[in-house]
Simulated assay, not measured.
Amino acid sequence: MIAALPLLALPVLVYNLIALTGGAAGLTLTLFSVRMASGADWPVTTGDLLLAASLVVLFVELLKSTNSRRAAIVNHGLSMLLFVVCLVELLLAPAFATSTFFLITLMVLLDVLAGFIVTILAARRDVDFGAGVGL
């Protein structure tokens, strides 16, 4: 049953913890700077790291969506529920009206769409209607 839980709930949970305890200012906190070859400094913020981690989690979720077991179907449903929660938070809660949370919500939407599309394509491939037989 644990395999059915959408992994993108983790970045959403982390964002919720940051936004509800420190507000949006917690996402703009510069953690460190990277000196680029051009000589410019690239400040890496908490929001940047959260987005990078979310992209890695999205990749793993996309790999999980290729499975057509019962757990994958439950995962698709829970991902849809997570998207609805993210959308409501984005639209109604001021602490979630940031580009960082919008991009995380977009990743959750992509996970939902990819999961359903991959499942439909796999089902179409598994079902052969006997095209061309007897013609």
Rank of each mutant, 00 (worst) to 15 (best):
G23D: 12
A24S: 05
S54C: 11
V88G: 10
L82P: 01
G134V: 04
V108F: 11
A95C: 07
P6G: 14
G132R: 13
L62Q: 03
L113D: 01
I120T: 10
S54I: 03
A93L: 14
V14M: 08
L58F: 06
A95D: 15
L82F: 02
D41S: 13
V112K: 01
L7Y: 05
I104A: 00
L27E: 12
S33L: 04
V108H: 07
L121I: 03
K64I: 03
M1H: 07
L17C: 09
V74L: 02
T45A: 07
I2A: 11
V56T: 15
L17Y: 06
G132I: 10
F32G: 01
G23V: 13
A4V: 03
S65N: 12
N75V: 01
A4N: 02
L49Y: 12
A114S: 15
G115R: 06
T45M: 04
S68K: 05
A3N: 12
F116E: 09
D48I: 08
D126A: 15
L58Y: 06
I73T: 14
V60S: 09
N16Y: 12
T66P: 00
V56N: 08
S38P: 00
G130A: 12
T105N: 11
L10V: 14
G132M: 10
W42H: 08
G26W: 04
A37Y: 05
S79N: 13
V112E: 11
R69H: 06
A37K: 06
D128P: 01
W42D: 04
G47I: 04
L106M: 15
F129E: 10
V118E: 07
L29N: 09
V60I: 10
A37E: 09
E89Q: 14
V34K: 05
L31G: 14
P43F: 05
D41M: 09
R69F: 05
L113H: 02
V12W: 04
D41Q: 12
E61R: 02
V74T: 04
G39H: 03
A131N: 11
G132C: 03
A122D: 10
G22M: 09
G22R: 13
G115H: 02
T46W: 06
N16R: 06
A19S: 10
L51D: 15
F83I: 00
